[in-house]
Simulated scan of single mutants.
Amino acid sequence: MEEAWRFADLRASGLSKTQIRRRADGGRWIRPYHGVYLDAALRADELARLRALFLRLPSEAVICRQTAARLHGFGEFAPMSRTVHVLLPAGVHRPRLRGVTIHETATPLEPVTLNGIPSTSAARCAVDLARTSRRLDALPVLDGALRAGCNPDDLAMEAISHGGLRGIRQVRELLQFADAGAQCRQESQLRLVVIDGGLPRPQPQLPVVDGFGRLRYVLDLGWEERRVGAEYDGVSHLDRTRARRDRERHNWLAAQGWRMRYFTDLDLYRRPRHVVDVLRDTLTG
Rank of each mutant, 00 (worst) to 15 (best):
E2H: 08
R11Y: 10
A12L: 09
G14C: 10
S16L: 03
T18D: 11
A24V: 15
G26Y: 04
W29E: 07
W29R: 07
Y33I: 05
L38E: 07
L38T: 09
E46H: 08
L50H: 02
L55V: 06
L57W: 04
V62L: 01
Q66G: 04
Q66E: 15
A69H: 04
R70G: 01
G73D: 06
G73C: 11
G75Q: 11
F77L: 09
P79H: 05
S81P: 02
R82V: 05
T83A: 14
V84F: 04
H93G: 00
P95I: 08
R96I: 07
R96L: 13
L97G: 01
T101I: 10
E104I: 15
P111K: 13
T113D: 07
T113F: 13
S119Y: 09
T120I: 12
A123G: 13
D128F: 06
T132W: 02
T132C: 11
S133I: 11
L142E: 02
A148E: 03
A148C: 10
N151A: 13
D153F: 08
D154T: 02
L155Q: 05
A156W: 15
A156R: 15
A156K: 13
M157N: 11
M157K: 13
A159K: 03
I160M: 11
I160E: 14
G164F: 12
L165W: 15
G167R: 04
I168C: 08
R169C: 03
R169G: 15
Q170H: 01
Q170M: 13
V171I: 09
L174V: 09
Q176I: 01
Q176A: 11
R185C: 05
R185Q: 12
Q189P: 11
L190G: 11
L190C: 09
V193S: 03
V194K: 01
I195K: 08
L199F: 08
R201G: 00
P202W: 08
Q203T: 14
P204S: 06
Q205H: 08
P207Y: 03
D210K: 00
F212Y: 08
G213T: 06
R214A: 14
R214E: 14
Y217L: 06
G222Y: 00
G222W: 06
G229C: 06
Y232W: 10
Y232K: 04
V235P: 01
S236D: 12
L238F: 03
H250V: 03
W258Y: 13
T264C: 02
L266R: 12
R270A: 05
R271V: 06
H274E: 10
V275I: 15
V275F: 02
R280I: 04
T282Q: 09
